Each structure stands twice: as structure tokens, then as C-alpha cells.
Computed example of a mutant assay.
Amino acid sequence: MAQVFGEVAALYDDVRPGYPDAVRQAILDYGGPIGSIAELGAGTGKGTELLVAYGKPLVALEPDPRMAAVLRAKFPQVEVLETTFEQWTPPARKPDLIACALAWHWMDAATRNQRAFDALAPGGTLAVFGHKYGYAEPGEEQAIGDVLRAVDPTVVERAEHWVRDGVLASGLWSDVEERRFTTYVMFSKSRYLELMRTFSPFRRHTPDEQRRTLDGLDAAIDGFGGSVHLELRTSLVLARRG
């Protein structure tokens, strides 16, 4: 499943929203000066867009060659490695920052904290951030949720603070904290349907289920005015290697 996004790499890069610059500044405020960076599960570079602004050496890990191709084209200054976090051998000079944007759940849950801790330089920072897709209008959230549950009633959301709780539970990190940011984005119906095609729960469905999902969303969005007002709830979990 971690490579399922490669099937829609260009669409993913076009339609997925990026991150507010406040996330970049919060990482800097927390960890101080940065010498080098490693990014896990970089995809097409939605998180990379923030990280390159530091102007420091950056290596990005992305196992899907189709996603990695988009990433390289966008950021020729970044060293892109087509590998998983679990297969990666960190350099002798360890990075000061390990960042992961909306991909922490793809890392092996039993080892991801220990691997990140071991890969960081002493005093280095772990920064895990990502969006939770909410809706500014309760009626939109209800209508869209009804469609998605009708197609797949087994889908459950992760606990609200699952990243923070997992980092804390590892017992490895010091100064663990979570920061939240909220931004609002208006999507036309057609663009929202394209966004839906890039989500992993949608992509793992059968073609018939995908068609029913898109048809149901098409009708639901028409029912509340033809556009979707997204509320992007961005979490940033920060931790330090002591």
C-alpha cells in the first residue's frame, strides 16, 4: 500500500494541499540551527517544500520510483533515495533533523521511533507533521461521511493524538510536544473528487467501489452548493534526541 500513490503521482502532487509556513518556523524555533536534514516518505515533496527553505543539505527517502521522479523534477537540489526508511543506512554524519510529512503511519510501527532516534545526531530533532482533513461546514462533513461509510463502513480514523502518544510511549525522546495549525481551503467539486482519488482508503477499494464513491460524492456536493470548504487541521509533533 505504501506505493499505491505512484499510480496517481502527478495528480497527487497537483491536488494535495501543502503545509503552512508556520510549521517550518515552529520546527526551527524548537530545534534551533539545522545542519542537515533527512525526510522520510517524501512522496512528491509536499513536506519537502517547507524543508528546502532551510537551505541545508537534504536527503529524501521515497520508495516509489514514480513519486520519486516527480520529487526529483521539483527539487533537483535534493538527494532523493528510492528506499524505505527500514532499508536506509544513515550516513556516518547523522542529520540534525529527521522530518516526516503524512507518512509516519507507513513506517514500521514497532521500529520507527528507535530507527529515527538512532539515525539522529545527539540533540537532533524529530518532526512529524500531517493534515487531518476536516470540513468547515458540519453539513458538508455529514454528507460526505455518509457517502464514504455507505461504501465502506469499516473505515475508522486514527486517534487524534496518535503520533504524539506513540512517540511518548517509546520512552526514547525528550521534550515531546505537539502543535496545531488550522487553515481553510475551498475546493470545487471536480477538484475535491480528484483529491479523493489520491487517498489510500479510496485507492484500496475495488473499481466498482471507487465508482460508487465518486458518484455518491458528486451528488452530495451538488446538494450543498457544488464546492467543499475544507478545514485542514495540521498537527506537528516535535521530539528531541537527548
Rank of each mutant, 00 (worst) to 15 (best):
Y192A: 03
T234W: 09
G6T: 08
S36Y: 04
L238N: 01
A150L: 13
F117G: 01
T213N: 11
F85Q: 08
L61Q: 00
V167A: 05
G41N: 07
W173D: 01
Y54K: 09
R211G: 04
T198D: 10
E140Q: 13
R149S: 14
F5K: 01
G18Y: 08
T154G: 14
K46R: 10
E39V: 02
L81N: 08
D118K: 09
D222E: 13
L236Q: 05
V176Y: 01
D14G: 09
G166M: 00
D13Y: 05
A110S: 11
L97I: 06
V15Q: 02
Q3C: 14
V23S: 01
E137H: 11
K56M: 13
Q3A: 15
S170H: 04
G45C: 04
C100R: 00
R197M: 13
A109Y: 09
Y12V: 01
V52S: 01
L58N: 00
G225D: 05
A116R: 01
E7N: 13
E49P: 02
T89N: 15
T213R: 10
E194C: 09
P122D: 10
L28W: 14
T183A: 14
W88T: 09
F224V: 04
D222T: 09
P122L: 11
A10R: 14
R191T: 11
A38L: 15
S170C: 02
D165F: 03
E177I: 13
I27Y: 03
G145P: 07
M1W: 13
Q77A: 10
T111P: 08
E231Y: 04
P207V: 11
V147S: 05
Q210K: 13
D152P: 13
W162E: 13
R158N: 14
G43I: 02
F75R: 05
G35P: 06
P138L: 14
A136I: 07
V151G: 04
